[in-house]
Amino acid sequence: MGPALTKPVSSCGAASETSQAPGADVLVRVRGLHFHRGEQRIFDGVDLDIPRGLVTAIMGPSGTGKTTLLKLISGQLRADAGTIEVDGREIGSLSRSELYALRTRMGMLFQSGALLTDLNVFDNVAFPLREHAKLPESVLRKLVLIKLEAVGLRGAVALMPSELSGGMARRVALARAVALDPMMIMYDEPFTGQDPISMAALVSLIRQLNDASGLTSIVVSHDVAETAAIADRIYIIANGQIMASGSAEQVAASDSAWVRQFMDGEPDGPVHYHYPAAPLEQDLLRSAVH
C-alpha cells in the first residue's frame, strides 16, 4: 500500500454511513474503532453501520483489515478502543458465555471453508446442531438434508472434505453456517480462487439466502464486480479508515481518484504499484559496491 492517501474520502452516498435516519434498524454498529497489530495500525477511528436484512459489502485492497473487521465484530479479536455493538449488545463487554450465546446467532463463512477434516459433509453440517440444538437424530437428519439441498449438495453427504472442490467446500461451509438459522452471516472472501461456475453459484446463494431467510449479510471481498452485484451497501476501507460508502451505484459514480483506482482495477494511481523503496539506481549501485 502506497503512502499517497492520507485523508479518507467522504461518503459517496447522500447519507453518510453514520448518519442514517433515526430509528433505522442497524444490526451492527461500530464507533471509533481503533485496532493495531504490532507496529501496524489497522483501524484508526472507523465508524460504520450494518443495516439489518441487507447485504453489506466491506471492500478494499488486500491487507487492509477486512477480515480483521469480521473478527472484531464476532469477538475473536478485541478492539484497542471504540465500541462494536451487535444487535444492541456491546461485544467488548460480553462475558465468554454471553459471547458464545451471541455467536449461536451469527454464522461465518471462512475463506478456507474451515470444515472439520475428520468429519464428512453430513457431520460437518450437523455439528452445530448436535452441539447446540439437541435434536432427535431423525429431525437432525432432515434439517441437514434441507440445508444441503439449499446449497445443491444433498448428494454429497457422505463425502469427506478432502474429496470436495474448493467451491463445494465453501457451499458445505455455508450450509453449516446457516444450520442454526442465524440472524447474520459473515462471508470472508467467499469468491477467492473460485471458477466462474462456482463463483456464480456462490453469488446467487448469498443473495438468495439473505432474502429467503431474512438474514443480514456482511461480505468481505476484493472482487469488485461480483460483490457490487449483490451488495445493497458498500464500504471501502483502506489505510485504517472508511474511504467510501454508499450503494453500488453511488460508489461506482465516485470521482475520488482512490475509489476509481480500486473500482476500475488500475495497477497504479493514488495507491502505488511499487512498495516504498529507495531509488532503484541507489540500490543497484549499493549492490555493486558490495
Binding site: 464476532s74 455467536r103 449461536t104 471462512f110 472439520l116 455439528f127 452445530p128 452441539e131 453449516r176
Partner: peptide, 9 residues
C-alpha cells in the same frame, strides 16, 4: 478449523 469452532460457539 479452531476459529470455525469458536464461531460455532
Amino acid at each position: 478449523q479452531l476459529s470455525g469452532l469458536e464461531m460455532m460457539a
